[in-house]
């Protein structure tokens, strides 16, 4: 065995080796190289530069103050009340968004596995929010919450939720719900589509067998559907969590992080720091902190996935 494998390079000589190299080393990279090149230049190198920025003072407004400052940015971050507030906001933003997106998405997916008249049209229309450009979803919902042209404050007032029709995005206690509702609207189709595909992959004879065994609809749902979907649900929810935690567009357009930073999440804080204050060093430090938090989460996720796949 050993002497055979060591011998295996010899016969055939260079010609065989060249063809093997061609097929296993060169040719795939020929197809891959543009992708690798672009990802490297536009994502990987900036990532490294970004990490190095976090140890420097780079403020475009103070061009003569540039230089290495060690951990200064991180010390500043540690005592930055706004950062900790943003972290807390990130948690609530992500938690409520994902919970509602998932539950409503699951409900929609279940509905879409049943038969009803006009299903194709229904499906296309319900999935439509997913196709609406993010900035437009944000603007639309901002307008809907505006008492001048939007009906929502008036409805909420007449339902007794609000004392009078005012814009909830001006109220630090409620403002976060504006972007969250927009996010739910925008994200339900994603979950519905993903879960629908998973539901359709459940073999039909499992349902038939359950029916023959006399299971009720509720039993079928809890004993067959949910366990079957569980691994897929876990992975999708977790990946989506990361995505939503990073997702600053809605918040930036709808509230800009205000009022009084009550809707500032970490990623929108990065953007405002970089874009408005042009303080790249500090923005990069926040970004590294966020990356670190998400990385920890991702490692946990991969560990969990391994466990789930095994069982």
């Amino acid at each position: 065995m050993t002497d055979r494998t060591s011998k295996s390079i010899l016969p055939g000589g260079t010609r065989a080796r060249r063809s093997l190299y061609w097929q296993y080393l060169v040719e795939p990279y020929l197809y891959l190289s543009p992708a690798i090149f672009l990802i490297g230049i536009v994502m990987m190198i900036p990532l490294i530069i970004g990490i190095s920025y976090s140890f420097q003072s780079i403020e475009l407004l103070k061009p003569f103050d540039t230089g290495w400052v060690g951990l200064e940015n991180y010390q500043k971050l540690w005592s930055d009340r706004k950062f900790w507030l943003a972290l807390e906001n990130t948690f609530w933003w992500t938690f409520w968004s994902i919970s509602f997106q998932f539950l409503l998405g699951l409900g929609l997916a279940m509905l879409l596995t049943t038969q009803f008249y006009g299903k194709k049209l229904f499906q296309a229309l319900v999935f439509l929010p997913w196709a609406v450009p993010t900035f437009l979803s944000a603007l639309t919902w901002a307008w809907l919450f505006n008492p001048v042209i939007g009906p929502l404050p008036h409805w909420m007032a007449s339902l007794g939720i609000l004392s009078e029709p005012y814009n909830i995005m001006g109220d630090p206690n409620l403002a976060m719900w504006g972007p969250i509702v927009a996010n739910i609207w925008f994200g339900v189709p994603f979950f519905a589509i993903t879960l629908l595909a998973a539901l359709q992959s459940i073999p039909n004879d499992m349902y038939e067998a359950a029916e023959i065994d006399g299971a009720s609809a509720w039993q079928v749902f809890t004993k067959i559907t949910l366990p079957f979907l569980a691994p897929m649900i876990a992975i999708t929810v977790m990946l989506r969590t990361i995505w939503i935690a990073n997702f600053a567009d809605l918040i930036y357009v709808m509230t800009g992080g205000g009022p009084a930073n009550s809707t500032q999440i970490v990623s929108s804080y990065i953007f405002t720091t970089a874009f408005r204050k042009l303080d790249f060093g500090y923005a990069s430090a926040i970004a590294v902190a966020l990356l670190f938090i998400l990385l920890t989460y991702a490692v946990f996720l991969l560990w969990l996935r391994k466990k789930l796949v095994k069982t």
């Binding site: 016969p11 055939g12 010609r15 065989a16 060249r18």
Partner: peptide
Amino acid sequence: EPISQGDFLIGGERMND
């Protein structure tokens, strides 16, 4: 599928590569 070792001939001609 590449041949790892040995010779393969068609009509007396080596065809491995």
